[in-house]
Nucleic acid binder design. Structure first.
Length: 498
RNA sequence: CGGGGAGUAGCUCAGCCCGGUAGAGCGCCACGUUUGGGACGUGGAAGUCGGAGGUUCAAGUCCUCUCUCCCCGACCA
């Protein structure tokens, strides 16, 4: 009898088409590895994607890890409705302007035209703050720290699997605070949570920083962003934390009574991380053989491939050994599957598990049983080595740890190697094609627009550096703007983005 | 939303210019031989040609509209 772990990734029909190398066509490669790993399928509606079991598992892994981190900071989960009255969205001017073009609107229900159209939430600040108005009375009600795991919809003009989809899954955190300072501090605190998560769980090595004003979330007074570098040198904004000031508190007339007996405005943060992050994992870790998943999120961490013997007896012995091995590793808390599909040669199975990014493959055949070992093949390095069966669980666990660490280090090294300090127009234009440009910027919006028009590079952020458990802006470095030559006080990160 | 490319079997595609019986490879199913890096033989199943309308004795092929996917850009996070 098969248990669920045995069925993961062993669909009866598979995609084993070719994978275009990254260097040949990065966009095509991205689609190829998504197909190879069977992460999504096409949906009948434009821009919407079906998350297949493998793709959804990655998301569940992300949820599990991230949710625990939020809860350690005292955040509680809640759930607000999918549909929001149109008038709510209209209450905050910048917010409307930012989201109006990408709203999906429900105009009919129960066979009749609705009196007021409902929007499918693009984000939930408005409905949440309309509710906070009822929940917040006293300074004793603050801070209020909520999060919800849900779907949102933004009518995207140019969809791409995971990176930009009309409907996507995410978490959105919403907090309310008594002072502007507290709200700012919480936004930064969450920025650190995201950063640590991307490093420790996904190993995708982001640059942390603050967005320039023209790149802020509609309605925010500050937006903090994480910008990991993909293997083609482009940036993927992943996980933003917003200091919303009292924008939404004012728009929804939320106040609290302080210890002084007076009425005070309420300050807000919001922060979100979405299924887009999965696209980041793929584009940071994948290689020309297929997807490569860090052990933390891989649907299957260890794939055991039995190699049949020359006769029935030895083949049965191999099967038994494979099952025992699986049991040992499962007991140690690992996600393990035995690929016992009949009529398929071992080589085809190796190929299969490689394409879908399984971190470690264990081969066990008659020769191994005789030697009391298995052959282990690492997905990240391709390295193949014999591992004794005694103490196998410990050895496998430490190999998985090594893979996790290696992926993280590789991503880090790649980003460092492709970040260039430049001080000229030509330097920016040139480096932005292969990675990040670290350059001075005058902080004029017109200059940024010109830079984008001429070089396709955008201001990703004012970078931070980490001191212990908090971020601080990097030191100022006054000089001429790398693009227009006007005075600049500090350096920014410039890159092409997804 | 502007520009370009494409939708034919599960996948990759040929057939369209020049209308006349729906094709190939891989995959899938059955049986057998195989099995340490994508196995082979024999037999078999499988497509209202993205959808709607039109022209025609006859449309995968010609015309019109439409939907979807991919790429480059604009917008956005």
């Amino acid at each position: 009898m098969l248990d669920s772990a045995d069925q993961i990734g062993q669909e009866r029909t598979t995609n084993d088409g070719p994978i275009i190398p990254r260097a040949t066509d990065f966009a095509q490669w991205y689609q190829d590895i998504i197909a190879a790993a069977e992460l999504v399928d096409q949906a009948p509606v434009r821009g919407c994607y079906i998350l297949r079991p493998n793709g959804y598992f990655i998301w569940e892994s992300i949820q599990r890890d991230l949710d625990a981190r939020f809860k350690q900071h005292g955040v509680q989960n809640a759930y607000f409705p999918l549909l929001i009255p149109m008038s709510f969205i209209m209450k905050e001017a910048e917010h409307v302007e930012g989201f109006a073009p990408e709203l999906a609107v429900v105009t009919h229900g129960g066979g009749e035209a609705l009196e007021e159209p409902l929007v499918v939430r693009p984000t939930s600040e408005t409905v949440i703050w309309s509710t906070f108005r009822k929940w917040i009375r006293s300074h004793r009600d603050l801070p209020l720290l909520l999060n919800q795991w849900c779907n949102v919809m933004r009518w995207e003009k140019r969809p791409r699997a995971f990176l930009r989809t009309a409907e996507f899954l995410w978490q959105e955190g919403h907090t309310a605070h008594a002072t502007a300072e507290e709200a700012r501090q919480y936004a930064l605190e969450n920025h650190v949570i995201y950063y640590d998560f991307l490093e420790e769980c996904l190993g995708i090595g982001p640059i942390a920083g603050e967005k320039p004003p023209h790149e802020r979330f509609p309605g925010a007074v500050a937006t903090f962003t994480l910008e990991p570098m993909m293997q083609d040198g482009r940036a993927l904004q992943t996980g933003t934390s917003h200091d919303l000031g009292d924008t939404f508190g004012r728009a929804f007339d939320v106040t609290y009574q302080g210890e002084d007996g007076q009425s005070h405005p309420v300050f807000a943060t919001s922060w979100g991380m979405s299924t887009r992050t999965i696209g980041g994992v793929l584009m940071v870790h994948g290689d020309d053989r297929g997807a490569v998943f860090p052990p933390t999120v891989a649907p299957v961490q260890v794939a055991i491939v039995p190699v049949p013997g020359r006769d029935d007896a030895s083949t049965r012995a191999v099967e038994t050994a494979a099952t025992d091995l699986k049991q040992t590793l499962t007991k140690a808390g690992l996600r393990v599957t035995v690929d016992s599909r009949p009529g398929m040669r071992p080589g085809a199975k190796f190929f299969h598990w490689e394409r879908r990014g399984t971190p470690l493959r264990l081969e066990i055949g008659p020769r191994d049983i005789e030697a009391g070992q298995v052959m282990a093949a690492r997905r990240d390095t391709g390295e193949k080595m014999a591992v004794p069966l005694s103490g196998i669980a410990t050895a496998v666990q430490s190999t998985l740890d090594a893979i996790q660490m290696n992926l993280r280090m590789q991503a880090h090294a790649r980003r460092e190697a492709r970040t260039y300090t430049v001080d000229t127009r030509a330097g920016i234009a040139e480096t932005v094609l292969k990675g990040y440009a670290f350059t001075r910027w005058c902080e004029s919006r017109e200059c940024a627009a010109d830079m984008q028009a001429q070089s396709r590079g955008t201001i990703r952020c004012f970078p931070f550096e980490k001191h212990g458990n908090e971020f601080r802006p990097i030191p100022n470095d006054p000089g001429p703007c790398g693009w227009c030559g006007n005075h600049a006080t500090r350096r920014v990160l410039v890159g092409r983005s997804y």
